[in-house]
Nucleic acid binder design. Structure first.
Lengths: 209, 209, 209, 209
DNA sequence: AATGAATGAGGATTCATTCAT
DNA sequence: AATGAATGAATCCTCATTCAT
């Protein structure tokens, strides 16, 4: 009764619901056409609300897309946790599987974010900053995971491996986009996790070379 | 030689030269702003020719950007060769270095192509098709290289490793874009090449696990 | 009454009024220059609203011109009624006079419609369909009139005479356009009505020859 | 040998042939889209010659379309003659049949001409003048025919009937355009000729009313 | 007798955004 | 909490025409 705030019976123009509809439409459009291709008119058409209503909920287009990325990132971030139990090898492989599955389920923030990352316009979009920011968060979580696995890696190796892990994850995501449905994202992520583990072990014993 | 052509170095309308200027301008703009962000007016301003002249050389914007990708890909493809001599480990590492260097030098086709890859508009841009096509070419070349190294890998492993190699290469490229200048692309590619080699060897001895 | 609405005669954006102004301007331009010759810039200039505002009220140029035809046809259709009283000869002559007068007063839909009729572009304009549709309505009304005059004509003759009546009416309209002001449209229409009546009588007594 | 100028063996860029091809293409395009809709690019595409070549043969677009009308009118004018023999009734009916058949065969000049007639742009196209000019020629020929039939009509009646005949002919032509193929142009023209004859006879006996 | 290349003006339409209600 | 209407700037692209060769 207290936990799940009951919606008032009279749904006199429910702002929260409208906001959600706009975001849903914006995700769909931005996924199809990227940042520039996402026009307010298109979003308006898709969500059924007039363009001017979108401006009631969001300051401008940039703000809208930043919100799309934030919401999608939160969803993704909640979808995976660092698994515990077993040895580091099993845990890292389980992690790979989880991350891959989360990406298959909610790939929006990554797709949109990567689009923005690849652009370098003179005056950057706020949405791009938002993505690079949440990307940093994800990276820190990966680094923490590597440390936590207790292989005793030096910070230098952690940094290199983190960058490598992240890059490959993103690359695999793109491969899935490019290759259509005949690319097995989960299988690739498992190969990736194994690679990563081996690299870490080797990097540890031979101290970086 | 003296009678005609008084003007020092040809001054008659030179279509080939104009085409080149347009493509140069288009590369610069598309690299900054992606497909939708590349306006004909921007390209026109950058190359000095009026917008209508661009349409003499290219059917439409899509055609122009497809041409940009094609030309840029050709440049990149010519910039690296499979190195010979030494053992497979040394050769694969040398290859990694080369590919990385080529990407640092002419990253246009990849940046633009990846942008297009991430979009999925209902009616696909021809430019996207062009990129996916040249990407296939690159992939075949990588697969051929893996076979040529004589490790005797089964085709299944070649396919998986090729996809993985390609994906990571693209991911590393993006990492460099996202991280600015403080990401050492060449170092990462060498780590990658080593990973790849080890994966190949292991995949070979243990047949898939 | 005093609190709100201080401005004398509503000054809030009035969509209905704007729509009317746009249509008025479009009639004038389309009448002068036909379908292709009617540019949105010309209409915009004539009605005072910016081009983009025209697109708030009409989906596109085609939609605008179809609306012009519809409105103009309605005006024309309301301007004449089948006269009653007297014998059929007098009534048919009165009808001819009325139709002619209505055409002199509001010839827009017919001029524009005929222009469209003469074109046969591969992908037909919706405006053309609209005209052919309202033209059918007018034709049915003429046929009904012929039947109502009680000459007991067989349907076959009604159809032939209707087509003939319609065609000649349109032809006379064109003659007036081609000949400038020195063609007496009303006189011609009376001659036409007489012709039509005689043809009907004869067609009736001699059954088709 | 002298009558039909033999074409030189070496057809080194035959100007006459190119001109014909351009005119053929222009007829096709203008028939589809009217005066404004006929773009040089479209004509160029249809005839295979570059746009600049069209300007070698014709001063400008207006000149091209005027030439189209002239050529098409000549064809039509040659396709019918005032028939002799028999009584006036038979002759006028035969004439109707001929004119109708000629229009079915080469309707281009009339269609295009009528399109131009219906427009009233501030600065008239030369092509419009050309059409109104050839239309006058046709009208004079009809008037001469009416006189020649020897019914002894007063000039006033000849003028009225000529206008009426011409108008109806054009109206019937449009009816065929509007109604598609299910309008029997020849049948309508025969009805028309009969009407015309009867009107003439009556107008003669009752002196105009 | 032709044509490849160019060009400024103008074509329809969409853009992100605002504002009065 | 929303929206109908408006708007100036920008979008892609086509226009008729020219000119050097």
């Amino acid at each position: 009764m207290a936990l799940e705030r009951q919606t008032p019976r009279k749904r006199r123009a429910d702002g929260e619901e409208s906001r959600r509809r706009i975001l849903d439409a914006a995700v769909a459009v931005a996924t199809e056409r990227g940042y520039e291709g996402t026009s307010i008119a298109l979003v308006s058409g898709k969500c059924g609300l007039p363009a001017s209503s979108i401006y009631w909920h969001f300051a401008d287009k940039d703000d809208l897309i930043a919100a799309v990325i934030e919401r999608s990132f939160d969803t993704w971030l909640c979808a995976w946790t660092v698994p515990d139990g077993d040895g580091p090898r099993e845990r890292i492989m389980a992690l790979g599987t989880q991350v891959a599955a989360a990406l298959v389920d909610s790939p929006d923030f990554l797709r949109l974010g990567l689009m923005l990352t690849l652009e370098h316009r003179p005056v950057e979009a706020r949405a791009r900053e938002t993505f690079l920011h949440v990307r940093q968060q994800a990276k820190r979580r990966i680094a923490a995971t590597l440390r936590e696995f207790g292989l005793g890696l030096p910070e230098e190796s952690v940094a290199l491996l983190t960058t490598y892990a992240m890059a490959t994850a993103e690359g695999l995501f793109i491969a899935a986009e490019a290759g259509g449905d005949n690319v097995d994202l989960v299988a690739l992520f498992e190969l990736h996790a194994r690679q990563l583990y081996d690299a870490a072990v080797r990097s540890n014993t031979s101290e970086g070379q």
